[in-house]
């Protein structure tokens, strides 16, 4: 077991994990931050998307022990039911979710997508949101939510 300081959503967590534990499993099983979802555990679906130092990554492909000294942001860190992030509010308004299981990953990707400026057109949004699978296929609505959030971000 390796002692580790994980900084998540602005809070420091002192934990002990094995070297083989992924950031995703550390978030879900050790810190009980289950908003970050496991869909494939091998970087194919995007449900586990979090931000590390502001960049979106698949947390299932990152080891927890390698995140020391970095700032991890999960879906729980960007907004709450009472005070949602503008992207989260846009997802609800545009009905950009159905079963909701891919949604936290979509939201984290969307926040990064807006910040990265990959929102010049619907086609550009579609391309830069294609790392996140939605089997319910709320894709059209996700594009609309990202477009709304990008416009609000620019304004």
């Amino acid at each position: 077991m390796i002692p580790l300081v994980l900084r998540v959503n602005g809070r420091e967590h002192r934990i002990e994990v094995e070297a083989r534990v992924t950031l995703l499993d550390a978030l879900r099983d050790v810190l009980h931050l289950t908003g970050t979802k496991k869909g494939c555990d091998r970087g194919e679906c995007g449900a586990c998307t979090v931000h590390v130092d502001g960049e979106r990554i698949n947390s299932c492909l990152a080891l927890a022990v390698m995140q020391e000294g970095r700032e991890v942001t999960t879906v729980e860190g960007v907004g709450t039911v009472g005070a949602p992030h503008p992207v989260q509010a846009a997802f609800v308004a545009r009905d950009a979710l159905q079963c909701g299981y891919c949604t936290p990953g979509q939201v984290m990707s969307a926040i990064a997508c807006v910040r990265e400026g990959h929102t010049g057109s619907d086609d550009e949004i579609r391309e830069w949101m294609s790392g996140n699978l939605c089997r319910c296929a709320a894709y059209e609505q996700i594009v609309a939510a990202v477009r709304d959030a990008a416009e609000a971000h620019r304004a």
């Binding site: 997802f91 609800v92 979710l97 949604t103 939201v107």
Partner: peptide, 8 residues
């Protein structure tokens, strides 16, 4: 929706 988009 709010519970799903926030991970709650």
């Amino acid at each position: 929706g709010p519970a799903k988009v926030t991970g709650a």
